[in-house]
Design a protein around this nucleic acid. Structure first.
Lengths: 222, 222
DNA sequence: ACGTATTTTTAGGCTAGTCTAAAAATATTA
DNA sequence: TAATATTTTTAGACTAGCCTAAAAATACGT
């Protein structure tokens, strides 16, 4: 009955979780296909199998949401992914731009004991290297109130607490600009014509930041 | 051409490596099937595929050996397996009887950078928790001269340096008898009728040890 | 060395997961 | 609301990996 899921099945659950969380609506077949870099027909096949296992609520043509057991598995994957990311940066000194890909593999290791001991070994971190909250062993996230850098009013002092995009090139770029977690920013100017902003970083340099970048950085007011 | 191998393919290479190492002869289809808990027909299928990829030397009806590239992959798997075992015992405080199963999963994580950083993080260990040598990044093993406890003459003082069986129940049993790595033993008596031996452990307790157990423990003379 | 026993391979079939192309359902827009 | 565009599902095919049953090759005992 409850045989372990394949990595493929797990990846579908994780994708559906993220899509539903983002939009608060059922995920469409196409969205899932896009997220997993696969085709709609493959998604339909898999949705039938996952529904059969009661991991998703799937109504033909109407999209998909996770059931409670599906959500438990998805959050466990996210928990493992983020704990491993902390391990890779804090213990093995990887850069935050390198860890996502390796954690994509490590998140599929099946051992609750391992996950829990890893968490303790890392001193129960609450956030991963990108500022994303790490769910506890019951699957509860400790959310933070945070806003996009793009939505911060002029002259407000803020601190970078997260990024919404985890791909290597983007994070490398941020690193180059000194836009790392914990950096203090003040928006000096906002340019209408391209939505870019002029930002002082750590009270030293002042940089122009594109709208695209500003929409991928989460900050908190100090 | 050189696309990454599946975990299944990797497991076949590892099994062939171990079988060939043990006997110094080509591994038979049946032996591989036995080692991987699968059927001979499945093995034949896989051998064809691995030969196609130049990872094994396979002659129909004549058994199989690894090519040099096959051996490189197999030793890399063993390296990863054993490094992860050290991590699990030394950093996460798992017992030596618990780590094999988890390391079976972790050994398939693909990232050389990860393996090498893990090795450094663990201070370049030379042996895993069961006393098996950990190959370096070039695949070279640092072998030890060691003998089976079963082959040690009477009244010789020896120290346990390894075990040849890694399954949980066996290791738990050894643990109970205080037969752990580093324990000092002196064989007091050897019983003809069942090949069992009487052994003093750490100069304190004296235990009877079955032939089966004595054949699975490696020792060094002090 | 010849018949029997064992091992290995082949043949054919199954599942998971993928794909393309076509059909069906839903959404959009004039 | 009717025609068109988009999305989703179905149909059918492919690969990897597994299986059983039967055939072929090898090994063994007398």
């Amino acid at each position: 009955m409850n045989q372990p899921l394949s990595s493929t099945e797990e990846n579908y659950l994780k994708a559906i979780f993220k899509l539903c969380e983002q939009s608060d609506k059922p995920a469409s077949t196409n969205d899932v296909a896009l997220a997993l870099n696969t085709r709609a027909a493959s998604v339909t096949d898999m949705l039938k199998r996952l529904a059969e296992k009661s991991l998703i609520n799937y109504v033909k043509y109407k999209g998909v949401t996770l059931t409670s057991s599906g959500r438990t598995i998805a959050t466990s994957l996210i928990r493992k992914h983020r704990l491993w990311e902390v391990f890779l940066t804090d213990k093995l000194n990887f850069g935050w731009e390198e860890v996502h890909e390796i954690a994509e593999q490590l998140e599929h290791i099946k051992s609750n004991e391992l996950t829990n001991r890893l968490e303790a070994f890392l001193n129960f971190p609450k956030y991963d290297p990108h500022g994303d909250p790490i769910p506890d062993s019951d699957g509860n996230f400790q959310y933070r109130q945070q806003v996009l850098l793009a939505d911060v009013p002029l002259h407000t002092e803020v601190i970078i607490v997260g990024v919404s995009e985890h791909e290597t090139p983007f994070l490398q770029y941020l690193e180059k600009l000194n836009l790392i977690l914990g950096a203090k920013l003040v928006i000096q100017e906002s340019f209408e014509y391209d939505q870019s902003i002029l930002v002082t970083i750590n009270q030293s340099t002042t940089q122009n930041i594109s709208a695209k970048v500003a929409k991928n950085i989460y900050v908190q007011k100090i």
